[in-house]
């Protein structure tokens, strides 16, 4: 599913949600519920950062158009109409990504896919904050996943074998 409105260029103030929006685009077809909540996280975070400057306001208005169009298209999906169900959906998806990457890591199979899975898992745990405060377990998973993605990426870039 392609989201309705095309977004304008990302304002530099919103750089911190750039990868969440990219994850949303990557999941529009694969898992629209994940795509919806990644955009919702970017929306709420963007509004906290800057909803006054013309460039940011224009971007947020378009992002809101996308979210409203997605909600309309997914209207009968429980994960969208009931956020408690949505929260479980996103958390399960994030955990699935984390476990896949962790299994590859333990099997010492280091590759771009497992790095991306670690990193995407950490982005999806960020997204869980739209539902409320993160659990300590999720905070730890996010920290570990982001560190692992960075560490393994740097090792492969330098031609070293991750320990």
């Amino acid at each position: 599913m392609a989201a309705a409105a095309v977004l304008p260029t990302l304002p530099p103030q919103f750089k911190s949600v750039q990868h969440h929006l990219r994850t949303a685009q990557e999941h529009d077809k694969r898992d629209p519920v994940v795509a919806y909540y990644c955009r919702l996280y970017a929306m709420q975070t963007g509004m906290k950062i800057d909803s006054k400057s013309p460039e940011c306001r224009k971007f947020l208005l378009k992002l809101m158009d996308q979210l409203e169009a997605m909600k309309k298209q997914l209207g009968d999906c429980e994960s969208i109409t009931q956020e408690i169900v949505g929260s479980a959906h996103v958390e399960n998806y994030a955990l699935k990504m984390f476990l896949y990457a962790d299994n590859e890591d333990r099997a010492e199979r280091f590759h771009k896919n497992m790095i991306k899975s670690f990193y995407t898992a950490s982005l999806l745990i960020d997204t869980l904050s739209v539902f409320g405060e993160l659990s300590e377990e999720n905070v730890q998973h996010r920290k570990y996943a982001r560190w692992k993605a960075t560490y393994i990426h740097n090792c492969l870039k330098n031609g070293e074998i991750p320990q």
Partner: peptide, 27 residues
């Protein structure tokens, strides 16, 4: 013009907040 611009901005900001609340069925 400054004050007009500011009031437009705050109206749109309120509009965004209201749309977000409606989106999350929090109205």
């Amino acid at each position: 013009t400054g004050s007009i611009g500011a009031s437009v901005a705050s109206t749109e900001q309120d509009d965004l907040s209201q749309r977000l609340a409606r989106l999350r069925d929090q109205v």
